[in-house]
Design a binder for these strands. Sequence first.
DNA 1: TATTGTTATACTCTATAACTATA
DNA 2: TATAGTTATAGAGTATAACAATA
Lengths: 155, 155
Amino acid sequence: MSDVKGAATPGAAALRATLVFNLGTLGALATDRFAARVEALGLKPKHAGLLAALDAESAASQQELATRLGVVPSLIVSLADQLQALGAVERVRDPEDRRRQVLTLTAEGRRLLARCAEAAEAADAELAAGLTAAQRTALGRELRALRAAQTPDGR
Amino acid sequence: MSDVKGAATPGAAALRATLVFNLGTLGALATDRFAARVEALGLKPKHAGLLAALDAESAASQQELATRLGVVPSLIVSLADQLQALGAVERVRDPEDRRRQVLTLTAEGRRLLARCAEAAEAADAELAAGLTAAQRTALGRELRALRAAQTPDGR
DNA sequence: TATTGTTATACTCTATAACTATA
DNA sequence: TATAGTTATAGAGTATAACAATA
């Protein structure tokens, strides 16, 4: 109703105040920074996500992984192809159901995963350089809480 | 050094504990949820970002907007084309430098921006449904702090 | 007939490069 | 010659759909 000139409309301020807006923009920034650091390993963020998912549940069928990561099965095929070419994962036919390809991390895969963790920690340090230790701890805690609040086994 | 069987390697736990990993995955999720809600308005998240940037600084050249949003100028052209077709922005030649196209929000643009804010708030409610009010407030505060800590005029 | 994985294909998003007009 | 914007083109990433092998 008011028509104050020069002041921002409530709309933009309201949008900028939302979680989704801030999570979206900061998430894109964080992913870019992380991607730049794992590029030298021959990996993209999605590869790191797949390695982490594999390590968390050690050995899983490609279909399981597809739903766990929230992507389509054909994408798992190409990610796994690339990781296999790097020697990071092994594909083994499940003897109990020969349609299934069971993926497992190799020693090299675990080594790469550890490198990814280092890269993420370095990106964290860069991203949170302007925050106090207390702020950073609080942020980490709240993000984990939000993550836990998503569909229990969410991506 | 230890080789506990069945336990996750330190790598995955370490990666999952980082800010970039959690920001990246939650950011992608948040953006998807937001995108689903603004789709009916004929908008994608990037359009909402451009509207918000325009509202915050009311009228800007396309080059300014490109650097502010961290995208290439040619992307601003197509986003602005689409917003103009929706009647959300106006392009006016700067009389002092006729190479410049100054973009401004129209009344319809402000209306759409307000709708985007509503969509984001609805997505927030869905995303943070499992959090306490205190957790949600804390998360919002920490995210704004992190955002403020990026390159002062960061995207 | 249903399911797992694979391949072939197409679509979306965004960037790079070439071009136009103004300065 | 340099800059703002535009257009043309190409690449990355991911999805959809058709297919093969196994259940």
